[in-house]
């Protein structure tokens, strides 16, 4: 018998599959397609203290085997989240995790304090890696000093499971994983999108209103896999693998590279049922190969 459950900090997930923030709305968008509660966790849209309109249209460009986005953390802020969204997502019988964003440390701290009061949110994912906002976001996650400061400040006010989402737009991502661990994070998730660009040669204009944006999809998978492998070797806290997972085989690759759990992102745009199929496929892989749990294969590659 295969037991798919995994532990991330104080969290117990019924299986190692989550949805990546910003690719799964607040879950309800997928209710028509499958039972969202069957996933290990859902990570909802990036949230900020104040409402954000996001970046101007166009904020998306299709690229080979992937896409660029520059949504810019559009969301209605924590007041709206508490009153309108929280009561609805509380009905899911799985872990609902909020992706936390800010323009400065105080933003992150104030937002985290509000979310800690929400009983049905057992964890946060601290986003120090959004490439699409002028202030904060990736600016924190690409500098070791500010990354440490913001993780420490949030850890000080948050006692539940803290996941730190890392930016791939750095020379040595493992270094940031180590910092997160040193500052008491329960896990790190990686990778956020890679900073990229696309140009319309007919108009001689960038395809995104912001010029640059975040690249996601299978195009980034080999890079993400390498970064997960490097980070997993450097830290002892769980690593959550993200980046171009389109099916269970991709997810198994991440687990073999050292991820304790995975997030399905862009794939949900193309096939909304992907995350659910990945759960099934991981179970089949483990069964077929004589393993009993995902933990049996975490980092289990022959080199």
């Amino acid at each position: 018998m295969v037991d798919l459950s995994v532990k991330i900090g104080k969290l117990v997930l019924k299986n190692p599959v989550m949805t990546a923030s910003g690719t799964f709305g607040y879950g309800a968008e997928f209710d028509d397609f499958f039972d969202v509660s069957s996933l290990g966790a859902i990570i909802v849209k990036g949230t900020t203290f104040e409402p954000r309109e996001g970046n101007p249209y166009p904020r998306m460009a299709e690229t080979p085997s992937g896409m660029l986005n520059a949504v810019g953390l559009q969301n209605k802020g924590i007041d709206y989240f508490e009153t309108k969204i929280y009561p609805v997502i509380s009905r899911y019988e799985t872990n609902v995790i909020v992706n936390v964003n800010g323009s400065n440390i105080d933003d992150y701290v104030q937002l985290t304090k509000r979310i800690e009061k929400l009983e049905n949110i057992p964890a946060i994912e601290l986003n120090i890696s959004c490439p699409n906002v002028k202030m904060g976001g990736m600016a924190f996650g690409t500098n070791t000093v500010s990354a440490r400061e913001v993780i420490r400040a949030v850890r000080d006010v948050y006692s539940r499971t803290l996941i730190v989402k890392l930016s791939p737009n750095v020379t040595n991502i493992a270094e940031f994983g180590v910092i997160a661990q040193e500052e008491g994070a329960d896990a790190v998730s990686l990778i956020n999108t890679l900073l990229g660009m696309a140009i319309d040669i007919k108009e001689r204009r960038p395809k995104l209103s912001t010029v640059t944006g975040g690249l996601s999809g299978p195009a980034v998978k080999p890079v993400a896999l390498r970064m997960v492998w490097q980070t997993a070797k450097a830290v002892s806290i769980p690593v959550i693998g993200i980046g171009g997972i389109m099916n269970a085989d991709d997810a198994v690759e991440f687990i073999l590279a050292g991820a304790s759990a995975v997030q399905v992102g862009t794939a949900s745009f193309i096939n909304p049922v992907t995350a659910s199929e990945v759960v099934k496929g991981i179970a089949e892989y483990l069964q077929l190969n004589g393993f009993h749990s995902p933990g049996d294969i975490v980092g289990n590659i022959k080199i």
Partner: peptide, 14 residues
């Protein structure tokens, strides 16, 4: 508008 998901999840087609 240009879309990715078509179901309100990606917020690209605003």
């Amino acid at each position: 508008n240009l879309m990715a998901c078509g179901i309100g999840a990606c917020l690209c087609c605003v």
